[in-house]
C-alpha cells in the first residue's frame, strides 16, 4: 500500500514579540512530528487542548506555514510549491472544521456554500451547478430542498453535513477532519461519524482525524497518534494496542466506560500542563509522571520502536 501522505519532522514555532513590559518569547506548537498515512487508512490524532493537534492539521494543508520539516502528498513535496500550485493541489486535500456555525458564510445559501469550492478553483462542475449541488447534498444525506436555505435555518448537524459536502465538492482523496463532531449532540455525532464511515467506503477516502475524544478515535480510526505539548509521544499501530507511554495510559484511564459495572476508582493525574513557552528540559511529561527517573528531566526522548510500537519514553510501560 502506498503512502498518500508522508510527514517528516514537521515543526512550527510561534513567536510572541516583546514589548516594553515583556520579553520576546517563542514556543514549539508542533515539534518534530513524523508519520505516514497510507491510502485508505484513517489515522487519529488525539491529545488535550494545546497539544498542537489542530496546528498539525493546518501545517499539513499549509494553511499555517511550517517552520521546518517536510510534507509529501501523493509524491509531491508540498513545501516546495508556490501559493498557486498549492491552491490547485488543495482540491485533492480538503478540511472539515470543528465549528459548522462559523465555517459557513451566514449570507450564503446552502447551494452557494457547497458550490463555492469550484469558484475558488476557477472550475465548473461537470454537469450544471444545480445538478452538482443536488448530487453533493445527496452524498451527505441532506434533502435537496435545503439548497435554498441559509445556515441559520438549519440545525448544527445539517450544517456539519454542509461542511462535509463543501469538502467533498472537488472530489479530494484526503480529508483532514478537525474535531468534526465536537460541537454536536451525541445522537448527531453518531450520525456524522456514520456518514464519514460510509463516505470512506464509497469514495475510497483517506482521513486524518483530529479529536480530543479517545473513545471516538478508538472507534473510528485504524491507527492513533497521541500528542502532548507539540510532540507525538506514542504511535498506536492499532486502536486496542496497550499504552506504552504513561501519558497515553493516563488518557485511557481518564476515559470512562459507558457501563456502571466497569466503574473504577479514578487516580487523577496530578499537576498541570506546563506552559509551552517555558517547557522544562527533557520529557515534557516528566513533572507529572509517576515513572519519571533522572534522565527524563534531562534528555528529551525520541520515538523509539524497541520492544513494541513507537513510543517517546525513557521508561516505557
Amino acid at each position: 500500500m502506498s503512502n498518500l501522505l508522508e510527514v517528516r519532522n514537521l515543526s512550527k514555532q510561534f513567536s510572541a514579540p516583546g514589548g516594553p513590559f515583556r520579553k520576546a518569547r517563542s514556543m514549539h506548537a508542533v515539534n518534530g512530528v513524523s508519520f505516514d498515512l497510507p491510502k485508505g487508512r484513517v489515522i487519529g490524532v488525539v491529545g488535550e487542548s494545546g497539544c498542537g493537534k489542530s496546528t498539525l492539521a493546518r501545517l499539513i494543508l499549509r494553511l499555517v506555514e511550517p517552520s521546518g520539516g517536510a510534507v509529501t502528498f501523493a509524491g509531491e513535496d508540498l513545501l516546495a510549491k508556490s501559493a498557486s500550485q498549492m491552491r490547485a493541489l488543495r482540491a485533492e486535500m480538503q478540511m472539515v472544521f470543528q465549528d459548522p456555525y462559523s465555517s459557513i458564510d451566514p449570507r450564503y445559501t446552502v447551494a452557494r456554500a457547497v458550490i463555492e469550492p469550484f469558484e475558488v478553483q476557477g472550475r465548473k462542475p461537470d454537469g450544471s451547478a444545480k445538478a452538482e449541488v443536488e448530487k453533493l447534498l445527496e452524498m451527505v444525506g441532506l434533502d435537496a430542498g435545503l439548497a435554498s436555505s441559509f445556515p441559520h435555518q438549519i440545525s448544527g448537524g445539517q450544517k456539519q453535513r454542509v461542511g462535509i459536502a463543501r469538502a467533498l465538492a472537488l472530489r479530494p482523496s484526503l480529508l483532514v477532519l478537525d474535531e468534526p463532531t465536537a460541537s454536536l449532540d451525541v445522537s448527531v455525532q453518531a450520525q456524522i461519524i456514520g456518514l464519514l464511515e460510509q463516505l470512506r467506503d464509497d469514495l475510497g477516502l483517506t482521513y486524518l482525524f483530529i479529536s480530543h475524544d479517545l473513545s471516538l478515535v478508538k472507534y473510528f480510526c485504524d491507527e492513533i497518534l497521541v500528542m502532548y505539548l507539540g510532540r507525538v509521544v506514542e504511535a498506536l499501530p492499532e486502536t486496542n494496542a496497550p499504552a506504552r507511554h504513561p501519558y497515553t495510559k493516563t488518557l485511557m484511564d481518564s476515559t470512562f466506560e459507558p457501563d456502571p459495572k466497569l466503574r473504577r476508582l479514578i487516580a487523577p493525574l496530578e499537576g498541570e500542563v506546563p506552559s509551552p513557552f517555558d517547557l522544562p528540559p527533557g520529557c515534557a511529561f516528566a513533572e507529572r509522571c509517576e515513572y519519571a527517573t533522572d534522565i527524563c528531566r534531562v534528555e528529551t526522548p525520541a520515538l523509539n520502536e524497541t520492544g513494541g510500537h513507537p513510543v517517546a519514553c525513557h521508561n516505557p510501560l
Binding site: E48, H212, D213, L214, L251, S254, T255, I266, P268, L269
Partner: peptide, 10 residues
C-alpha cells in the same frame, strides 16, 4: 479536557 474531567469527577 479529559484528564481534568477525571480529576473533577473524582
Amino acid at each position: 479536557d479529559v484528564t481534568v474531567q477525571a480529576q473533577i469527577i473524582r
